[in-house]
């Protein structure tokens, strides 16, 4: 086992602390915006958060690819993380179902006109094809075909972004129609279901961008696939969750 050699080179690293600083900044920006009610300052802090996070992640990735060696343990950790993600989604599903059942008699009056299940099918097709493209990208990557990997990865990012844009556009329409988070318990749980999912898509897209950059500058090569495997696993999870979210929010929620 080469672990000894691996870690002994790196008794220290500054990058976790930089990423940690962005965590604290994120919390402070939320507090500033919502609790201390300084929206401008809050937004500035949020921008700072993103900048510090980007610096931290870049440095971390560089250190990992230039000095660390592959132990291949990433996917196990991602799998363990997915267990807790399932519970996070679970709390929102429990909430939705509780209201769906206890408000059974009045639910029909909660459902807005503009809620369209066929639109959800389009979203599903878009997101699921991105699961397909990332598989193609990963295959190209493991063949050592850098250009193929990048092309399919960019396609994945485009599809994911399209999903987010269309979804947000739909939210705007629904809000215009008067269906907001405060309308009723369906409003709260509809936006919670779709919002918690979209936030995961955004995290996934962020990871893809990191992936793309380490692929583009040649740091990640096909003999070091752990990060790629972990990222793809997470993306598949997010895509599968969409089916459950859509089925609940649009079909079970949307029927009177």
């Amino acid at each position: 086992m080469q672990e000894a050699a691996v870690h002994s080179e790196h008794e220290t690293s500054v990058w976790p602390m930089v990423v940690g600083a962005s965590v604290l900044l994120a919390a402070m920006s939320l507090l500033t915006y919502f609790h201390w009610q300084q929206p401008t300052l809050g937004v500035i802090l949020a921008g700072l958060t993103v900048a510090v996070l980007a610096i931290g992640v870049t440095g971390w990735a560089r250190e990992f690819f230039q000095h660390g060696t592959e132990e291949g343990l990433g996917p196990i950790a991602v799998a363990a993380f997915i267990i807790s993600e399932v519970i996070i989604f679970g709390t929102v599903f429990v909430t939705f179902w509780l209201y769906r059942i206890t408000h059974f008699d009045t639910w029909g009056s909660y459902v807005p006109e503009g809620l369209d299940a066929t639109f959800a099918i389009w979203l599903t097709l878009i997101l699921w094809s991105s699961s397909f493209t990332i598989v193609l990208s990963e295959r190209a990557f493991s063949r050592g075909d850098k250009n193929g990997a990048m092309t399919w990865l960019i396609a994945t990012i485009v599809l994911g972004s399209l999903f987010v844009v269309l979804h947000m556009n739909e939210w705007v329409h629904l809000v215009d129609e008067g269906f907001t988070v405060s309308s009723n318990v369906f409003g709260s749980s509809f936006y919670a279901l779709t919002g918690v999912h979209t936030s995961h898509v955004l995290v996934g897209l962020g990871i893809h961008l990191v992936l793309l950059s380490v692929l583009a500058n040649g740091m990640m090569t096909s003999d070091r696939p752990t990060f790629y495997k972990g990222a793809a696993l997470y993306w598949h999870f997010v895509d599968i969750m969409w089916l459950l979210v859509a089925a609940n929010a649009y079909l079970i929620g949307g029927s009177a």
Partner: peptide
């Protein structure tokens, strides 16, 4: 822990965004 996190996020949304959880 994720269940606790889910609960407090809903608490946050109720207070600052106006959800009705």
């Amino acid at each position: 822990v994720p269940a606790f996190v889910g609960a407090v996020i809903m608490l946050f949304l109720d207070k600052y965004i106006g959800t009705q959880f």
